[in-house]
């Protein structure tokens, strides 16, 4: 890889008493990527994130931030939105944002002007002198998101950022995350909701039972796990004897999935269809969803290795 990774995790291990939460995990993340950290609840995602945010330290292994070993300075470069979130209920919104930004090393004036800008983006500018407890839950989440990005971090770590948000606010937050990403901020996105990852992430790290069982580019992974399946849509009907040659799945009047055997290729299927004058509209390879990949990976390790149900 030609880039200096924004985060490089090398053989990191973390145990709490008897329980090994993170077991020999390694991965690297390009500086401006969106990385999805996937895994069922209790797989070790939060433990890993806490080490990256320097809240805890690894028992073994090392973590590098832009090639430097993690130190006390790096937290100012990271914005962290924990899954368990909350704010000081009795503090005013503006005051709270400024306080959290100043803890990240931003001076008072800058913190104030940035907080105002961000509140305006979320149409919360009139709530500067409101106490947090007076805001709705959705508003509180947005304030917390603002607190996460106020110090202009190089790396954003979001643990289940959309949980509990209504669709409008979720969309607004996603837009802002993507905007930050385009401006060059790295984003680690921890979730167990696969469909969100497929939408947003270029890279994934799949964690189960504390181990990194899969990582890489989303498109490559899906290709790696493709299992020779194609989707057809057509006008008219299929040749009557097609089932003798190919395994047909989920047939509908105008479409069908075809499972090829190991010796067959897409070209074989296409040739057969053309030979039989099928009026084709769509011919496309079916790639497995991340969810399928995930389930496959987890169950491959045997049922007792499978993490608790998501």
């Amino acid at each position: 890889m030609s880039f200096v990774p924004i985060i490089e995790v090398k053989n990191v291990r973390k145990a709490y008493g008897e329980k090994v939460a993170v077991d020999d995990v390694s991965f690297a993340m390009p500086p401006d990527a969106i990385l999805g950290m996937l895994g069922p609840n209790g797989a070790g995602k939060t433990s890993l994130i806490r080490m990256i945010t320097t809240i805890t330290a690894p028992d073994a292994g090392q973590i590098f931030f832009h090639g430097e070993p993690l130190s006390g300075y790096h937290p100012t470069q990271i914005g962290y939105l924990p899954e368990e979130r909350g704010l000081y209920k009795k503090m005013y919104v503006g005051e709270q944002l400024v306080y959290l930004a100043r803890l990240k090393g931003i001076d008072q004036a800058t913190a104030e002007s940035r907080a105002k800008e961000w509140l305006a983006k979320f149409e919360l500018e009139n709530h500067w002198t409101k106490k947090v407890e007076e805001l709705s839950k959705g508003m509180q989440q947005q304030v917390q998101f603002i607190a996460t990005v106020l110090h202009d971090p190089k790396l954003l770590i979001l643990d289940e950022p959309f949980s509990g948000l209504d669709p409008v606010n979720a969309t607004r937050m996603r837009t802002e995350i993507l905007r930050l990403h385009h401006a060059g901020t790295g984003v680690i996105f921890s979730t167990h909701r696969m469909e969100q990852v497929e939408e947003l992430c270029e890279f994934i790290v799949l964690i189960n039972h504390g181990q990194n069982i899969l990582n890489g580019k989303v498109s490559e992974i899906r290709r790696r796990f493709q299992d020779n399946r194609f989707h057809l849509e057509f006008n008219g009907s299929l040749p009557a004897g097609m089932g003798d040659y190919f395994q047909l799945l989920n047939p509908t009047p105008s479409g069908v999935d075809v499972q090829l055997s190991a010796t067959q290729t897409g070209n074989d299927l296409l040739r057969y269809l053309l030979d039989h004058n099928v009026h084709l509209i769509t011919f496309r390879e079916l790639l497995p969803s991340l969810n399928e990949v995930f389930i496959k990976q987890v169950t491959k390790l045997g049922p007792e290795a499978a993490a608790p149900a998501v």
Partner: peptide, 16 residues
Amino acid sequence: EEKMNRIVEVVISSVR
């Protein structure tokens, strides 16, 4: 209060 509000995780990602 900080523990129950869950603010503490955010704060200790900035402060020891």
